[in-house]
Design a protein around this nucleic acid. Structure first.
Length: 736
RNA sequence: GGACGGUUAGCUCAUUUGGUAGAGCGUCUCGUUUACACCGAGAAGGCGGCAGGUUCGAAUCCUGCACCGUCCACCA
């Protein structure tokens, strides 16, 4: 570095140049590490797989935080000599992507049904090509050291094979079944959803108290009661009622248990039954039971052998089962009509204001209707047991540990997983039906053969049932999380026994957001154990959530999101990484404050000028001796040197403990105050040969340890110190 | 309804096991000193959410409450 170099650090030019340098070096791939001779740990591997982002849009602050965390880890490990592998990739994100592309087409006045399945899938692939590439490019801008030669996509050819293999395995082992059960149905997406794909919104609504007339008791019997009053928020579902349920020990109703009441409007007799799951204190203590359209009612119905009356269809409209007067009405419309009718019959006791949570789809926020539907399910009991055990035994550890509770709570109460989705974009279920018993096209159809199917990786040439038909593949696709669950090993070539799988599996660290602990992490854990017999990774880092300055969730639709690319544009990638990590302290969520990125920019500039100064002063200084301790330092220099030697293990430990923010704070304080303000100032007045050597030595040590946090500027400074083309990214990490 | 996390300087956050509270940004004063004004030297600014308790001593431990946030849940 010489005097004509600007006193202003220019991140834009540098970052592009440096990233190209890294790419050309080949050191993002672990293979290159073997070429090193100073590598005592070259036989050890360290593997991280990125949570593959959706291809539906662009990266947000959470991605930037997570990418930086993983990059810090992988860069440090690489410098320590490990064969490091960080696999990049993207997720096809079934419903989310389909919805985005569908919306996009809608602008042109085209529906997905206009396109047809194949054409529509082509459109999605086009979208994937475009946005998948943009996302990966954004990662590069952040400075991640991923091995781009191993980039994967959850729908690429090999991945599809892995998914089919997994499905076949589950089937062979009796963990899969197909059944008609009450599931969550999104009336907008027109598909079933798993329990985890439902969100709840608070809604102000009303609680209606409705009278169900008792059937006149026989002569001679004592007590006559005119009616039983039930409280409900959804009067329209009464058309499908099969019973009224009360708590068995509820004194108010004890005498009535077993007697019938008249279901108004339908004029059907339904029994009063007893069930312990009923809360005596809610409403009147008597509940209408609609087995077809409520999950609790479905269970009560099953226990008590109640008939199922379907009255709501997949479009959120009343069906013929509701009666011809109501068929075709939307649920909300039907509610009004029903209420009017009940009022006319004088059967509405009272109406109360009521606030409760309403289920909505996590992808489109559309309304959820519980309804019976023929779906594929994965039995969860045994898989969950394995997953619980692995964490209980400490084979897999969560950081911070408190998140293990979230994991256990879910797994210990998990229901069977509905894995089939009635959308087009996804892994088509490898099941083939006998054409004679078709009717599987629409899971809502009445007539269908449940047993006449084959599970196979390819369509059978001859139908084993009728011997002559062309078999028809299931039209449903798999829940997108079914394929994500295989990520840590599928990206390494599983189910084939590849060298990568052998070398890099189990992965070491998985870093991700808390909201997918169960949706994704838990499923990877039991999938890994089930398919590979090994845990998929050792440490799970649950990073902070990046919130707005007011502590609210960042949301693109609300306009409260921050685009990390804007920050990089404005301050540079190193400064952006600095700002994010600066705020990443322990478990505390991050209330986003941009000033820390500005602080990062200032810090980069400071470092730049420190380096400039050291270069100018030490231009004529001989090489740093191998044994720096042999130099006769004066007292100030010795004190500084000792602080420097203490700093390095401290930073190392903090990174190893996943305390990234603390590590950066320590580094920042040392470099600015101990090095620049104190020692450099001292060395200006005492520019002995020893002090000049120490200046240079300290600079190199500092940028080495700072490199994982701020890789671009440190690499740039290093490259001006070493004209032989040596790269800081593979320089030995200083150890005690 | 349950669980978890938060409440410390104007703002964003630190304060490893209890002993008179720190940083960055912002503000104010001074400074063109052999890198850097995206700088240097210095300063102001906090009865640490509220109320009790334990202790010689608590931001730090205990209890209760309030507010904020997140997650989970089949109270109709």
């Amino acid at each position: 570095m010489s005097k004509e170099i600007s006193s202003q650090y220019n991140p834009r030019e540098t970052e592009e140049k440096i990233y190209r340098l890294w790419m050309e070096s080949g050191f993002f791939a672990p293979e290159a590490h073997q070429l090193r001779t100073d590598n005592p740990k070259s036989y050890e591997t360290f593997c991280v797989s990125i949570p593959p982002p959706n291809i539906k849009g662009s990266l947000h602050m959470g991605h930037a935080l997570n990418a930086t965390i993983q990059d810090i880890l992988i860069r440090k490990k690489r410098m320590e000599g490990y064969k490091t592998l960080w696999v990049p990739g993207t997720d096809h994100a079934g419903i989310a992507t389909q919805n985005v592309v569908e919306k996009n087409l809608k602008k042109q006045g085209i529906s997905r049904h206009d396109c047809g399945r194949e054409k529509f899938l082509e459109k999605i692939l086009e979208w994937k090509e475009k946005y998948g590439a943009i996302i990966l490019d954004q990662f590069k801008k952040i400075g991640v050291s991923m091995d781009w030669s191993r980039t994967r996509f959850t729908m690429d050819e090999k991945y599809q094979e892995a998914v089919v293999f997994a499905f076949l395995h589950y089937h062979k082992n009796g963990l899969l079944y197909r059944a008609e059960k009450v599931i969550n149905w999104c009336t907008r997406c027109q598909t079933s959803l798993s329990d985890l794909e439902i969100e709840y919104r608070e809604e102000k609504t009303k609680l209606y108290y409705i009278k169900y007339p008792c059937v006149q008791n026989k002569e001679g019997e004592k007590k006559k009661q005119e009616w039983v009053i039930v409280a409900t928020t959804r009067p329209e579902t009464m058309l499908g009622d099969s019973a009224i349920a009360v708590h068995p020990s509820d004194a108010r109703y004890k005498n009535l248990i077993g007697t019938p009441v008249i279901l108004p409007i339908q004029n059907r007799e339904i029994p009063i039954i007893a069930d312990k799951e009923i809360d005596e204190n809610f409403g009147t203590g008597a509940v209408k039971v609609t087995p077809a359209h409520d999950l609790l009612d479905a269970r009560i119905g099953e226990k008590n052998n109640l008939p199922i009356h379907k009255v709501i269809g997949p479009l959120g409209k009343m069906t013929e089962g509701a009666g011809s007067a109501y068929a075709g009405l939307k649920v909300a419309e039907c509610r009004q009509v029903i209420l009017e009718e009940l009022a006319r019959q004088n059967l509405v006791e009272k109406i109360e204001e009521y606030t409760h949570n309403v289920a909505v789809c996590y992808r489109c926020e559309g309304g959820i209707e519980p309804l019976p539907s023929l779906q594929w399910f994965l039995k969860m009991e045994k898989l969950a047991e394995k997953a619980i055990e692995a964490v209980e035994k400490g084979e897999i550890r969560f950081y911070p540990k408190s998140w293990e509770k979230v994991y256990f709570d879910w797994l210990k109460n998990v229901h069977d997983w509905n894995i089939s989705r009635q959308i087009w974009w996804g892994h088509r279920i490898p099941v083939f039906y006998c054409d004679k018993k078709l009717g599987i096209q629409n899971a809502q159809n009445e007539e269908r053969g449940i047993s006449d199917f084959v599970v196979a990786d390819k369509k059978p040439t001859a139908c084993p049932f009728c011997g002559k038909c062309e078999m028809v593949q299931e039209t449903d696709v798999l829940d997108t999380w079914f394929s994500s669950a295989l990520w840590p090993f599928a990206i390494l070539g599983w189910p084939k026994k590849t060298k990568d799988l052998e070398a890099y599996y189990p992965n070491h660290v998985l870093s991700t957001a808390r909201d997918i602990i169960n949706l994704w992490v838990a499923r990877m854990i039991y999938s890994g154990l089930e398919f590979t017999g090994q845990k998929p990774f050792t440490d799970v880092i649950i990073h902070a959530t990046v919130l707005t300055k007011d502590g609210k969730r960042m949301s693109k639709s609300l306009g409260t999101g921050i685009d990390p690319m804007d920050l990089i544009e404005k301050y540079g990638a190193d400064a952006t990484r600095f700002g994010i990590i600066w705020q990443n302290m322990g478990t505390q969520d991050i209330r986003w404050a941009e000033e820390h990125v500005f602080a990062g920019k200032k810090f980069a500039n400071k470092l730049w000028n420190m380096a400039r100064f050291v270069m100018i002063k030490t231009e004529n200084v001989a090489e740093i001796p191998v044994d720096i301790t042999a130099i006769a330092f004066d007292d100030t220099a010795r004190a500084f040197y000792q602080k420097l030697t203490a700093l390095i293990p401290e930073v190392s430990k903090k990174i190893d403990d996943y305390e990234f923010g603390h590590a950066l704070h320590v580094l920042y304080g040392f470099i600015w105050y101990e090095f620049a303000d104190t020692y450099i100032e001292y060395a200006k007045e005492h520019d002995t040969k020893e002090n000049l050597i120490l200046l240079r030595y300290a600079l190199i040590e500092c940028i080495t340890v700072l490199h994982p946090f701020m890789p671009f500027i440190t690499e740039e400074i290093y490259s001006t110190l070493h004209t032989d083309g040596a790269l800081l990214m593979i320089k030995r990490w200083p150890s005690k």
